[in-house]
Simulated scan of single mutants.
Amino acid sequence: MLKEQLIAYLKKENVQGAFLIKDLSDGETLCHNECLKVPSASLIKMYILVEAFRCIKIGSLTLDKEIAVKKEDLVDFSVLQFLRPRLYSLEELLSLMVVYSDNTATNVLVDYFGMASLNELMQQIGCRTSVIQRKMMDFAAAEEGRQNYTSVMDMTSLLERLYQGSLLGQPFDAQMLDIMKGQADEEAMRRDLPDELVIARKSGELDALDHDIAIVYTEKRNYIYVFFSWETGDNNCGRKVLAETSKLVFDYFQGK
């Protein structure tokens, strides 16, 4: 019933979409276009987070490692563009990248780890529709066809393994979830949900494209919400789609 509701909602709003909703108590899964490769927007930042903690796990990196942010690194949609260039700890850059979706922090970390290593990581963890081919705000690369991609299946797999503690193992998976729980964006899937809910999430947007991925922790049961929307007309419409579908999903699980 919920799956049909969500598909009907997409048709009513005249937008394209893909979703995967999973009950983390009994495994019930509802999905649509789950394997479709879609531009990832800021969701690609999740793999940078995982690569950082993979390096921490093997001992080649620490959270207090200092990385230089230079004037030439600064790009739009970034907290760092309003701060002076200096050394920042890896922990600071990861928090800026995930909590505030900071594009400068992201690009600095892409340079630090390298796209080849990030793509190798995606393959190693089984996220085979995901790829990074450009940095944030590199519109010239996008026009040349170098885009970043993922799917709701890949994002769900990533979230579920983080939740289970089976991606990198503990304490690393819990540390990544803690960063995600600090998400500053109160719109999109978060907008119409109770303020007291704990949610580990990451959102992303491009022109006429809005995505949100989340683990929602409730008193009754925890669930994964992964929803992509595109051809939305504008981002206000896309965020509305995420907010209203998220509320439908929340109400479904509250009544289950």
Score class of each variant (00 low, 15 high):
residue 39 P to V: 06
residue 53 F to H: 14
residue 43 L to K: 01
residue 24 L to H: 09
residue 73 D to F: 05
residue 76 D to Y: 07
residue 31 C to M: 11
residue 53 F to P: 05
residue 47 Y to I: 07
residue 17 G to L: 01
residue 48 I to R: 06
residue 22 K to V: 12
residue 59 G to D: 03
residue 33 N to R: 07
residue 37 K to T: 13
residue 44 I to P: 02
residue 40 S to V: 11
residue 37 K to A: 15
residue 75 V to G: 03
residue 37 K to L: 01
residue 40 S to Q: 11
residue 76 D to Q: 12
residue 30 L to I: 13
residue 45 K to D: 03
residue 45 K to Q: 11
residue 77 F to G: 01
residue 31 C to H: 09
residue 77 F to M: 04
residue 63 L to S: 05
residue 60 S to P: 00
residue 74 L to T: 02
residue 32 H to L: 01
residue 49 L to A: 05
residue 76 D to S: 13
residue 35 C to E: 13
residue 18 A to W: 00
residue 62 T to Q: 13
residue 70 K to H: 13
residue 45 K to M: 06
residue 68 A to V: 07
residue 71 K to I: 11
residue 34 E to A: 13
residue 74 L to V: 01
residue 28 E to M: 11
residue 23 D to E: 04
residue 46 M to K: 07
residue 38 V to T: 15
residue 72 E to F: 04
residue 62 T to L: 03
residue 76 D to T: 12
residue 66 E to A: 08
residue 50 V to F: 05
residue 34 E to S: 13
residue 63 L to T: 09
residue 30 L to V: 04
residue 56 I to T: 04
residue 26 D to H: 04
residue 24 L to D: 02
residue 67 I to E: 06
residue 24 L to N: 06
residue 60 S to C: 08
residue 30 L to R: 01
residue 65 K to R: 15
residue 36 L to S: 03
residue 62 T to Y: 00
residue 50 V to I: 15
residue 53 F to T: 01
residue 26 D to V: 07
residue 62 T to F: 01
residue 36 L to W: 08
residue 36 L to C: 12
residue 69 V to R: 01
residue 63 L to Q: 11
residue 47 Y to L: 09
residue 30 L to H: 08
residue 68 A to Q: 14
residue 36 L to N: 02
residue 25 S to Y: 12
residue 37 K to F: 00
residue 56 I to R: 04
residue 38 V to D: 02
residue 36 L to H: 03
residue 77 F to Q: 10
residue 60 S to Y: 00
residue 42 S to I: 08
residue 38 V to R: 14
residue 68 A to T: 10
residue 26 D to L: 06
residue 48 I to A: 12
residue 71 K to T: 13
residue 78 S to E: 11
residue 22 K to F: 04
residue 25 S to D: 12
residue 65 K to W: 04
residue 29 T to R: 11
residue 66 E to S: 06
residue 32 H to P: 03
residue 56 I to L: 10
residue 31 C to V: 02
residue 20 L to N: 10
residue 18 A to E: 01
residue 70 K to T: 11
residue 20 L to P: 00
residue 71 K to S: 13
residue 25 S to K: 15
residue 72 E to V: 12
residue 65 K to G: 02
residue 20 L to W: 10
residue 18 A to P: 03
residue 74 L to N: 02
residue 77 F to L: 12
residue 72 E to M: 06
residue 73 D to Q: 05
residue 54 R to P: 01
residue 60 S to L: 10
residue 61 L to Q: 09
residue 54 R to M: 02
residue 27 G to V: 09
residue 61 L to F: 14
residue 57 K to F: 07
residue 38 V to M: 06
residue 35 C to H: 14
residue 61 L to A: 09
residue 42 S to F: 12
residue 67 I to L: 14
residue 53 F to K: 08
residue 19 F to D: 01
residue 22 K to W: 02
residue 49 L to K: 05
residue 47 Y to C: 08
residue 56 I to V: 15
residue 66 E to C: 07
residue 29 T to F: 03
residue 44 I to D: 12
residue 40 S to L: 10
residue 53 F to G: 02
residue 22 K to H: 02
residue 27 G to C: 08
residue 55 C to F: 06
